[in-house]
Write a protein that binds this DNA or RNA. Structure first.
Lengths: 334, 334
DNA sequence: CTGAAAGCGCTTACAG
DNA sequence: CTGAAAGCGCTTACAG
């Protein structure tokens, strides 16, 4: 490993000048800068991240806390984030939230506090009060994306509106007998409602607006297969609904699979709508609420960079956009 | 930020002892260790990553180079890697390979050489000769996963065998008119054949064994929609095949979609097989070659840790396992 | 525009 | 088992 001294010697300047030439900080004559850079390139010199971080206080690294790594949605958001960081020379280190409470504790109490990152993006994680406190005490900017807690500055889709929009679409087609497949935390107060709960609330609101009170809700996990099993029950049980609003596209796929297994024609005998804009939605003809996860990631990435002063501060963070995409899985009831 | 000095003062020891107590390195009396740890916990002290890295030469961080972040396969591998690193206290920083050659250069010439990571995992990337050289010159262990180049120590599935197995399955059902949908680099010499090319080679071999020479191959990108468009052409063109072997499950989904659009019944009129073991395969009834990407990630993670001496060296790296999973998308030809 | 020097906050031989 | 001190390799006021 060649060090900064060797470069300084080769270029005939001090190490201070090498540092300035390579980082671009501080005034320097063009000639000197060029000479130093040539020497560095020549020697194959690269600044040590650890030394530069220690000396400058800047790690040029952003942490991202994700609840799940292998979900299409999160992977896509990550891609969006990475697309903004890399061109500015920022690395991205991932903190995958484990289910193990002990490992989570270590992460929040130690891992995130080592000064490895200059900023943090937290993706739609359900946080305990303790975890939330640790996040707020971090001496770095923290940007939430889909994080329900008001304490964290964040980007958010209006998920109540998403729920309303999906439901209104089914209602406008003439459906009345609609079941919502999702998850919900009934106890939570308004401020901290998580995403699935907000979607459900939108569903309930839209149904109420149509004069339908206490509409049917079925609890399911957010996997395709979990939803498939619920749908199998639902579609073979009494009072088969004419439409199902699934809280995610992957759940909607499970519903489609169940319908196919049972020989129920979609959309003639059953309408299905999901949420997300999953990449396979077009192929499977699924009507959905697209929410542009890649763009969400880009915005979150730019938001931390802005908080660090690396990037121009963008327009105030209104609600993130979403859009009803009507495809072949919804139609008027038979 | 409380520093190591404060902890030393609080515990009535030197900073050297604090360092030893907190890192677990070097001999120390249990009493002292306990006292120091209590003081540290009390003060909320956490070791600075940059300082520790600079002083020790250990970053406790593993880099992962991925060609694509938003593909299910890679996201799942990443999850597997993370599952091995986190419990050992290692962080994971992601290097998403951009399509932009300039950005790639910066990554290989500078980014990876900053000493930010102690080891590197490289995922099935097609590397230029230059990039390969940079990787080999890195002063840290590099583990490949699906990397075709022999220069990089690596874990690999025998993709020629995968191609043969998929093809043999179709042949054994009685199909003769089989098309392989994939990608291939005809010029490459044997040593550096990439994964898609190996799969194709397996296909060609199996077909030849069945007496079918120069079997039909159609080039497609590795997306569902790209495959769908190819399949649409193929299934409406002359000499419609009775079976299609797609080089990935996502491509196979595209074929299934095309068949559905054209009213071609699967598997009665068309058999379809993919590769990967995609999470939605069960739902869509896709026959496939499962290759356990999560387990692949786990093994790669353990392999770097072993190279760093953090983990016991595991059994010699034989070929990674794969397995034919027969579901509803393949059957004898009509 | 450039340099000498202090300092970032740890770890680790070395000595006892 | 524990401490004093050097050193890891940079960056940045400060001075000129």
């Amino acid at each position: 490993m060649t060090g900064i001294e060797e470069v300084a010697r080769a270029a005939g300047v001090s190490t201070a000048t090498v540092s300035r030439a390579l980082s671009g900080r501080g005034r320097l004559s063009d000639a000197t800068r060029a000479r130093v850079r040539a020497a560095a390139a020549d020697l194959g010199y690269v600044v040590s991240a650890a030394a530069a971080t220690l000396a400058s206080g800047r790690a040029e690294n952003i942490g991202v806390v994700v609840p799940l790594l292998d979900r299409w949605f999160f992977a896509t958001v990550l891609d969006g984030i990475a697309s903004q960081l890399a061109p500015r020379g920022y690395d991205m280190t991932l903190y995958n939230l484990s289910a193990d409470p002990a490992q989570r504790r270590v992460l929040f109490e130690t891992g995130l506090r080592r000064g490895r990152v200059d900023g943090l993006i937290v993706l739609s994680v359900d946080l305990t009060a303790d975890e939330l406190r640790h996040l707020c005490e971090l001496p770095i900017p923290v940007v939430g994306l889909g994080v329900p807690h008001a304490e964290i500055e964040g980007l958010r889709v209006d998920d109540t509106a998403v729920g309303r929009t999906a439901t209104a679409h089914l209602l406008s087609l003439g459906h009345r007998d609609i079941v919502h497949l999702g998850r919900s935390v009934p106890g939570a107060d308004d401020g901290a409602l998580d995403i699935p709960t907000r979607r459900r609330r939108g569903f309930t609101q839209a149904m109420a607006d149509a004069g339908i009170h206490s509409p049917r809700f079925v609890e399911a996990d957010f996997t395709a297969d979990g939803a498939r099993r619920r749908a199998l029950d639902l579609l073979t049980g009494p009072a088969r609904p004419t439409a199902i609003f699934a809280a995610s596209d992957e759940m909607a796929y499970g519903v489609l699979a169940a319908a196919r297994e049972l020989g129920i024609a979609v959309p003639r005998e059953l309408s299905v709508i999901g949420v997300d804009g999953h990449e396979l939605g077009g192929l499977l003809e699924l009507t959905t609420i697209e929410q542009f996860p890649h763009a969400q990631g880009e915005r979150a990435g730019r938001a931390v960079l802005a908080a660090l002063g690396v990037e121009q501060v963008t327009a105030p963070t209104a609600s993130l956009p979403f859009e009803l995409v009507v495809r072949g899985s919804t139609a008027p009831p038979a």
